[in-house]
Design a protein around this nucleic acid. Sequence first.
RNA 1: GCGAAAGUGGCGGAAUUGGCAGACGCGCCAGACUUAGGAUCUGGUCCCGCAAGGGGUGGGGGUUCGAGUCCCCCCUUUCGCACCA
Length: 835
Amino acid sequence: MDTTYDPQKIEAKWQRLWAEQHLFDAEAALGRKKYYVLEMLPYPSGDIHMGHVRNYSIGDALARYMSMKGFNVLHPIGWDSFGLPAENAAIKHQRPPAEFTFAYIDRMRQQLKRLGVSYDWRREVTTCVPEYYRWNQWFFLKMYERGLAYRKKSRVNWCPQCETVLANEQVVDGCCWRHEDTPVVEKELEQWFLKITDYAERLLDDMKELVRWPERVLTMQQNWIGKSKGTEVDFRIEELDLPVRVFTTRVDTIFGCTVVFLAAEHPLMDKLITASKDPGHLRSEVGRIKASAVPSKVEVNLEKDGAATGFTARNPYNGELVPVWVANFVLMGYGTGAVMAVPAHDERDFEFCTTFDLPIRTVIESKDGESKVNLEAAFTEYGRLVNSGPYTGLSSEQAIERMTRDAEQAGFGKGTVQYRIKDWGISRQRYWGTPIPMIYCGSCGVVPVPESQLPVLLPADVKLTGTGQSPLAGVPEFVDTTCPKCGGPARRETDTMDTFVDSSWYFYRYTDPKIETAPISKEAVNYWFPVDQYIGGIEHAILHLIYMRFFTKVMMDIGLVTFSEPVARLFTQGMVIKDGAKMSKSKGNVVDPTAMFEKYGADTVRLYMLFAAPPEKDLDWSDTGIEGASRFLGRVYRVVAKYADELAGVESVLGKAERRKVVPEYSAEERKLLRKAHQVLRHVTEDMEERWHFNTDIALAMELVNELAGIEASVSDGKIRPEVVKETLEVLILVMALFTPHIADELWEGLGHSGATLRVAWPQYEAELAIEEELELPVQVNGKLRARIRVAVDASEKSIRQLALADDKVAQNINGRQIVKVILVPKKLINIVVK
RNA sequence: GCGAAAGUGGCGGAAUUGGCAGACGCGCCAGACUUAGGAUCUGGUCCCGCAAGGGGUGGGGGUUCGAGUCCCCCCUUUCGCACCA
């Protein structure tokens, strides 16, 4: 064995051997327990970044552990390769996006191979090839058949930078998710939508299956879906005898309604303006309110504004007439675009009515009978109804139920459920995506492309402009086609699909990546699914992670899969930051992983990624920190190399039952070493099963190295048996194999083994060896630490007590006072309480 | 504004169930080896104090023999939601 650690040489050697041995190739094997480890597939931007390294180092540690535990592990990777960055680069350099994309994929694949992750590369999935995206089209057609894909003209979010439409999920704080400083504008466009709203209830309901998902993600999804139960009530515009429907979650407060608010865009508004006594004035007022209304939520805490329309509406519960106002804070996009205002019991209404001097009437008292409405605040809790005609005296809960029922019987309202989530707009006016497989025929209308004609190929050599028109519209060979129904001339849809469609089902494809007859093989999916562990960043909590759940439910409904949730367990890792900020080119704080591989080797980079912080927390990159990781691997290498020659021929006893016979009695020195080794093994085993605090696992491995370095005895002088040292080194190597596989395999070989550590069965720690024989027990007097005594692990309570009381320091602190009681926590401490 | 998570040495972090606070690493200090060291090895390193001793986990209170950990109030940071009727 070489005497110095040369990571470049070792890593190249083992990566070659692993590939030659097909070490990471996974095959479905019925009857063998499986484990599916999935990391979020990267977008091929050109180079991997530290976030990828962290993500894949975590996943690889788990995949390797599960393999060594005997599971049949599936650990795949692919490329989320459609999308805007490639198209923008293409425009800039006047080269086709495919060229960039495939070049970037090649480069990133090399970088991932350099990292040595245990992927089954035969299963690589690339979303931008027809063999993959044809199935996006197939899913789209299936959804169209079921009415889940539909076209409508609507106000959509438009990013002026991307020159395309964005889904609601892609708008963050009123700005584009890729251009955080670019406010989204609204445009009226014909768009294709997927009816995710049909699945809102199931997306909520099935969360009870997601017990191994982070609470945070579930809460975010819950808020995003935004279910609220309430009542729709028809008021009537008195002057025009027109109904205006409002939605409220608090129908119990309706006797306190003193005004009705309409959104400026409310469909009734035109009629009101026309019928108004002063149409010009009202029109300009509505215009003003519209202009001040939440344009794209860039302005937070918008000042409330409104104007009276001059009309009145009749409350169907008490027959009262209240004024109708237009108000800037009422959203047209939620509920009915009209609300009843109850200033006494709603903060917003209170604020508005106070400002505009509208009446405030209390109709709810707290349950102890006090009126809580005052000059400063509304009372918004549930309570007991007052001044509410026949409902007076009821609790809010009873009233909501009864009043809703009464409205239904009288025909002026009904109980209903509102959701915040909107249908998923998937049309993109860009080139580099999956063509939407639809055809427009002058006589037949909208006609789907027949399944047999899939894929609708994305044409090559398209002039890219990035001007907001779909580039495909300028390709006559693509656009001009014949109608599948009547055979007449027709035009193809020229928009492409949102790339989030691609990532909504890619992880199914890994289980049989080349199947040509269907998007997925049911057999393969049945064996490998669900994904046992998914690992990725929190930033996908409401985009990808909700779309993917939606897709699975649709797949279940069309009979492709038999379950409704694809991922059993989700882990969201922290970000890699530097100097307190997320690594980004614009901030100039990017650390390039490949430069680090060259300088330190992949094992060091992995080790540092796992050691610097627990995986769920943000990790602050430190240049000296990685030096430390590198130094440690050097120590590990040297401590093994030091013994390698004399131990290579020694029989290994780790994990073997006959060890007791081989070594009947260990010396104190030997016990010390084995104790530490098995304590480390116990800690790592328990940690890998649940907690995943790899930083502490590595810390323990470091302690083990310190222990090995500190042994006084040596094998050559016969004071310590070679098999004991060998066993200790083996534990060290196998633990390191999870985190730094290349050096581990090299050292494993150096110790006389052949083959990769991945094929070694994870050893069971031996509890007897891990036990301490003698403890240092802290002695407290009145809760303050005064001394430490050494006691045997099985010492009796009485003897511990005697020993503690005999201690000089303890006696001094008791100082003749009376002992009230003695608390002895076995193996922890002893506390003497005196007064 | 609402909701959640977090706050521990100079720094990253450890303390898994209420039981020795600061494991492990970085940095720093000293020493050894060395022509040399940004290699390696050894020792030290929470604060005050020469010491004995005392103090200490954002601040204040509480429960307990015992609190970083549990309870109450407050402060700060991060994240999510933010007129959703």
